[in-house]
């Protein structure tokens, strides 16, 4: 569950919950070049979405969940 942090890669599990947001933010602050792997992810809590929108990290792998990816495209468009 949650997010698995590798050296420069944060791997999102299926469902990333509100409690994960603070950790995600901290990790991204500490690892400015950290990339995000969303492949397995089907939903992220809005708090995480906001972190991704503000920090704009590189997405290493898009979500295989088409619906989620569609929304993420809208959110991360700018």
């Amino acid at each position: 569950m949650g997010i698995e942090y590798k050296k420069a890669l944060a791997i999102f599990s299926e469902n990333v919950s509100v409690e994960d947001a603070e950790g995600l933010l901290d990790w991204l602050v500490k690892n400015p070049k950290g990339k995000i792997n969303l492949a397995a992810c089907t939903h992220i809590h809005a708090a995480n979405l906001q972190v991704l929108m503000v920090v704009k990290p590189t997405i290493a792998a898009e979500s295989k969940d088409e619906n989620l990816q569609k929304w993420l495209n809208w959110a991360l468009a700018n």
């Binding site: 509100v18 947001a21 603070e22 995600l24 933010l25 991204l28 602050v29 809005a46 708090a47 979405l49 906001q50 972190v51 929108m53 503000v54 920090v55 929304w71 809208w74 959110a75 468009a77 700018n78």
Partner: peptide
């Protein structure tokens, strides 16, 4: 049909509060 998601969170990253919803 379409969506646009924005956040008004402009604080420097170090000061950003992950639990302040500005979406």
């Amino acid at each position: 049909i379409w969506s646009s998601i924005t956040t008004s969170n402009n604080a420097p990253l170090a000061e950003m509060d992950a639990y302040d919803c500005k979406l």
